[in-house]
Design a protein around this nucleic acid. Structure first.
Lengths: 234, 234
DNA sequence: CCGGCTTTGTGAAATCGTGCACAACCGATC
DNA sequence: GATCGGTTGTGCACGATTTCACAAAGCCGG
């Protein structure tokens, strides 16, 4: 009766760290490491050991006191909890600079997110092939999404087109969106949205730089900024 | 002592939102909007109005009760607080797929972060020009950084090379790093690090997708997702 | 089987971030 | 110069997250 699986609610902050643990554990396993303590994992992940233990405890009691965690088993458990037991094809909206780079980035497909389609409004781009996928017109988005049963969309358009892209994605049936455009997008309740904004990240660093130079004398307080910011959903 | 300025410590969560407010205010100002209430700004930014007011209150009391905020003045204040009163040239390490896309992305320079240099270890790439900047060898990093007085570095290398890139950047005098590689990097105390990991973002979305489909029924069956159910992220 | 050493899992305290509610205040109007 | 509608700035309560600290538990050598 231990199959109380995904009923548990995992804190968002923990969900954001699990992928990091997963990558580290996978790398270590490939290196031949079979067991690891929360202390070691914390060291690799750059976080507090107690946090690692608490995070992992949301998955269940999979460690062994006095010993640590079985790496292979933990990899499996994290993958299951994150829903990574199968691939999640994604559709990219926008075949410009960024869209092409994303499509060509192997780290995508390698980690279980193959590019299932790319669309753009520019007729000049339609038909060309990037990252092994043929660019189709935005108007065909619904067919692309439904034909390949895609539920994750990536917005790689200019800011001005982002809301339209989001509307199109939602209309096509996508339920999770990763937005690279420098614009806040509105989506219906129940759609998950992640945001990656280069300018915002740089501006945060600029703040720290500026603060460093302003506090040129009496400030012992200098450290790293926070983890990646999370986008909101309705 | 009027320099009560940057003595204030602004919460990291607020720092992460100020760039969003800044972009919105700038866009609105260009549209001819001269005044805005916290309610309106909150609407654009997709956050709570009280949060907007509290965030802005860290800058000082720059609003007018019964009226709202003067857009132009607020833009100025946010820019000052974030240290955006001058450009911050950045150096990109890694001229591969991503590095080239970043260099070619105008949203970089447009927002005050011109690409001041690109370096790579691959001799085949050295000498080529991307985004109007000539690629130089990693060994010349220090000259690039010091010659243009650069304090922000961007890591766009494969994961395996990220720590070396970070060490090289720190060695060259960079004090803030934006890391796009899927690796946790170690830096000396006092160096700021921002992270953007596409795989992590997608895996977070996968978690929400998986959760959505699992919530659709009891426990075993797993198939047709699609049904917008509960709002996941926050 | 026992005592010593190690490491997990987790209450509880500390810290951080959010949102409500409302007094203080502004500008306009009469 | 008093009243009124509108909006800021903020005290406070609450919820989320982090960290501490330690009992419970596994392993091992004797």
């Amino acid at each position: 009766m231990a199959s109380q699986r995904s009923r548990r609610r995992i804190p968002e902050a923990t969900v954001a760290r699990l992928p990091v643990y997963l990558r580290i554990l996978g790398e270590q396993f490939d290196e031949g490491v079979t067991g690891m303590s929360s202390d070691q994992l914390a060291e690799f992940a750059g976080v507090n050991a107690a946090k690692v233990r608490k995070d992992l405890s949301y998955l269940g009691s999979y460690g062994t006191r006095g010993v640590g965690y079985d790496v292979e088993f933990l990899v499996y458990q994290i993958r299951r909890e994150l829903g990574l037991t199968h691939d999640w094809p994604v559709v990219i909206v926008g075949a410009g600079n960024l869209g092409q780079a994303l499509a060509g980035y192997n780290g995508f497909g390698d980690r279980g997110f193959p590019v299932g389609g790319i669309v753009d409004v520019d007729e000049a781009k339609v038909g060309s092939v990037v990252g092994g996928v043929r660019v189709r017109h935005l108007s065909e988005l619904k067919q692309v999404v439904q034909g390949r049963n895609i539920s994750i969309g990536v917005i790689a358009t200019p800011g001005a087109a982002a809301q339209d892209a989001a509307d199109a994605l939602v209309g096509a049936g996508v339920t999770s969106i990763l937005n690279f455009a420098p614009t806040v997008i509105n989506v219906p309740h129940g759609i998950s949205v992640g945001k990656v904004d280069l300018a915002v990240e740089l501006q945060i660093l600029a703040y720290h730089e500026q603060r460093r130079s302003n506090a040129a004398q009496g400030s012992p307080l200098v450290s790293v900024p926070g983890e990646p910011r999370r986008g909101a959903s309705a």
